[in-house]
Amino acid sequence: MSKPPSVSPLVRSIEALSGQVIADCYQCGCCTAGCPIGEAMDPPPSKAIRLLQLGRAGELLDSEGIWLCASCMVCGTRCPRGVDYALIAEACRAVVLRRPVRSGRVGPETVTDEDCEEIPQQAFMASFRKFSG
């Protein structure tokens, strides 16, 4: 379905990665209602898509919710508009993981305790693979 591309380049790349059309969502909240960890998800799926609709992708990428999503795909299965949030969350994770790091090399010794708290484990592994050795 052809829809005008989103204004924000970040949202556009999330759309491209996930294959989902953000504008298709009409904010009924069915995804949030069915999410098995909906109480813990912050932001919950419908709100996350709302942030993307408003071009506020940065807020979503910094959130914890995208890492909590277990990709059970209940949201997408019951969505009346055919938008699959599990794929969007996956795309958001990919965007975070692909962010460039400032220093050229990464080793376990360079990681501070603070980083350990903040950086997702997947990101550690990915960066070790890419930037160590």
Partner: peptide, 20 residues
């Protein structure tokens, strides 16, 4: 919010809804 799922629990009916 649109309801996602409705199921029986004992003599009650449970509704998974959302408050968007």
């Amino acid at each position: 919010g649109k309801v996602s799922k409705i199921f029986r629990q004992g003599d009650k009916v449970m509704v998974w809804a959302s408050d968007t």
